[in-house]
């Protein structure tokens, strides 16, 4: 601290020996030292794109190095898919093979799990360890940190879809136009945004263990309820009543519309788009509120 005298509201008290000491100065600042404009940082190479990419690369690196995350987000959905595709993939359904339809439903299962669970658990763990705090006091805005967690799920999800496609072709004998596959992956990745927002909100509020339990419960219950793992026709009748109220159902309908458009009406597509857009808005607001709460 500079040595100029504090002259504004500084009081002085006499100690037992009579020595004076400045005390209790609520504005104990250095008089006459006005603030100047902020000097530029020593380094001026900061760029949002560079930071976002670096953050996303870090996230992806941590996912790849984490066996539990890889198991739940890659091995589990691909393993389920391989099992059921080998059993039923060759059957015909609505002018296409079951393996192709399963690519949309199990693809929804895989992509939504990646989008929801990976950033959610990553955020919860960062909070719990104190690493999020370190990031929050850094020069990276918190929204960029969180966005990077979501962006990092894109290559992860595409990888899951690629693995499922290899299985569908080799085990289930599926045949799919490359363009239809690209549309399917694009729709599932974009349509998984509300799930990512839900994961972020839970990760911002719950402990790592709590987030794990909650997100897994939501993941599996809504997946089964939406007919992603087993066709709704095979399940009790009330599943067909409940399914339209669940987000994964609508995402899978949009996925199916890309590879077997004859099985989904335009009205159904419109409804599913509206539901997912509305859910994105609501869950986005929830995520913003949760992050603000985590910050304070």
């Amino acid at each position: 601290m500079s040595t100029s005298a504090s002259t504004r509201t500084t009081e002085h008290v006499q100690t037992e020996r009579g020595a004076a000491m400045s005390t209790a100065s609520t504005t104990d600042l250095h008089a006459g030292q006005g603030l100047t404009a902020a000097p530029p940082p020593h380094h001026d190479g900061w760029s949002l794109r560079r930071v976002l990419l670096a953050e996303a690369a870090d996230e992806l690196r941590s996912v790849v190095r984490e066996p539990i995350t890889l198991f739940f987000s890659v091995a589990l959905p691909v393993g389920f898919f391989a099992f059921f595709a080998s059993a039923f993939g060759g059957q015909q359904a609505g002018g296409t093979t079951v393996a192709v339809l399963m690519l949309a439903t199990y693809g929804t299962f895989g992509v939504m799990g990646t989008a929801m669970i990976t950033p959610g658990l990553s955020l919860a763990e960062d909070r719990e360890r104190g690493w999020l705090r370190t990031r929050m006091v850094s020069a990276t805005p918190l929204p960029v940190v969180v966005a990077a967690k979501v962006v990092a799920t894109i290559p992860h999800a595409v990888g899951v879809m690629a693995l499922m496609t290899v299985v569908a072709v080799t085990v289930g004998g599926a045949s799919l136009e490359p363009l239809a596959w690209v549309r399917l992956v694009a729709v599932l990745v974009v349509g998984s945004l509300p799930f990512a927002l839900l994961g972020v909100a839970v990760g911002a509020l719950a402990s790592f263990g709590g987030a794990m339990a909650l997100l897994q419960a939501v993941y599996f219950s809504t997946s089964v309820g939406s007919g992603l793992l087993f066709p709704l026709a095979m399940l009790p009748g009330w599943f067909q009543t409940v399914a339209p109220f669940l987000l994964p159902y609508h995402l899978s309908r949009l996925g199916i519309a890309q590879i077997a458009p004859e099985t989904v009406t335009a009205e159904d597509v419109g409804t599913s788009v509206l539901v997912l857009v509305a859910a994105t808005a609501v869950l986005g607001a929830f995520a913003v509120w949760a992050l603000r709460r985590a910050r304070s």
């Binding site: 940082p41 380094h43 001026d44 190479g45 900061w46 760029s47 560079r50 930071v51 670096a54 953050e55 870090d58 690196r61 941590s62 190095r65 984490e66 960062d126 360890r129 104190g130 690493w131 999020l132 705090r133 370190t134 006091v137 850094s138 020069a139 990276t140």
Partner: peptide
Amino acid sequence: AQSAGFPRTFRVGELLRSAATRAG
């Protein structure tokens, strides 16, 4: 900060490279 809270899987060199990027 009082607690480092470093991510479990990262090496020190990686953390410093990322920190440098974040700081510009």
